[in-house]
């Protein structure tokens, strides 16, 4: 009796120690994020104003605002989504719901997972070769957003497929047994129950795409443009590249400005993430099994 309780005490002590260890490690993980955010807000917040957001850069980009870059990022990301989301979701539905389980499917799946891990600079080079040169889109919004889209595609496919696979197979079987076709099953049972996961994946991908510099640098983003682009064949400015340029290429930029640009970029990314978390919470409240 006595021995058993001594053992329990010891186990409880060990457990407390482990918990403490994990807590400390988690806090260590959060620390850099907190410091970065703190610095950005501290230096960047004072420069942010309506005119900063909605005016053109002036005096060799040492004064004025970031409007063309902000708008450019929105253009690039939206267009990239238009390419990658429908295609990615369709591919994921095919792979998860239709494809036979054979070596070809397995090879495709493997390829997609590997593509998702390819560094963005490699996608950039592909974009130059394929869109700028081969398809003769030149360095343009079109080429840059296609490159971003290609980069986003495998991630969209993987995250969508995972959401689809999270719907229990028993639901599909019950539905098929009722005489529903594959498509009826997908539309009425699988998609409604995976849409939250799919959206979350897409939104997270948007936020990642918004911050990318390498894929757009050689394919369509410009250092500085005095005008807004007029068509998808024009170049555009973009926040991520603008930040890079301001902090390394242009002398005489006031100290707060790059921080301000970074803060805007981070705000876009974080609000996208917040949106996706919100989605998940709303839709999880409606989870049906």
């Amino acid at each position: 009796m006595f021995q058993a309780s001594a053992l329990n005490d010891r186990n409880a002590r060990i457990q407390r120690r482990w918990r403490l260890l994990f807590l400390v490690m988690t806090l260590l993980l959060i620390l850099p994020v907190a410091i970065i955010l703190g610095l950005l807000v501290h230096h960047g917040a004072p420069v942010i104003s309506w005119s900063f957001l909605f005016e053109f850069p002036r005096q060799g980009m040492t004064a004025g605002g970031i409007f063309p870059a902000l708008l450019g990022t929105i253009f690039l990301v939206s267009l990239a989504l238009v390419f990658s989301v429908p295609l990615g979701i369709a591919a994921a539905i095919y792979l998860s719901e239709y494809a036979r389980d054979n070596w070809l499917t397995r090879a495709i799946n493997l390829a997609i997972i590997n593509l998702a891990g390819v560094p963005s600079i490699v996608h950039a080079l592909f974009g130059v070769g394929a869109f700028v040169l081969f398809f003769r889109f030149g360095t343009s919004i079109l080429a840059a957003s296609l490159t971003l889209g290609i980069m986003a595609l495998p991630v969209v496919i993987v995250s969508t497929r995972e959401s689809l696979q999270a719907v229990p197979r028993a639901f599909r079987e019950a539905c098929w047994a009722l005489g529903a076709t594959r498509w009826q099953t997908i539309r009425k049972v699988v998609l409604p129950n995976s849409v939250s996961g799919i959206l979350t994946g897409v939104i997270l991908e948007v936020s990642r795409t918004a911050g990318e510099t390498a894929p757009i640098m050689f394919t369509g983003a410009a250092f500085f443009l005095p005008f807004l682009p007029e068509s998808v064949y024009d170049q555009t400015m973009a926040l991520s590249l603008h930040l890079f340029v301001l902090s390394t290429q242009v002398p005489g930029v006031p100290e707060g400005v790059p921080y301000g640009v970074a803060l805007v970029l981070i705000a876009i990314v974080l609000s996208m993430n917040a949106l996706s978390i919100g989605f998940r919470m709303v839709l999880r409240g409606r989870k049906r099994w």
Partner: peptide, 14 residues
């Protein structure tokens, strides 16, 4: 559609 099926564990569609 001509054959109804009842599974061992009730599978209510969501």
């Amino acid at each position: 559609r001509q054959i109804g099926v009842v599974f061992p564990l009730p599978v209510g569609l969501p």
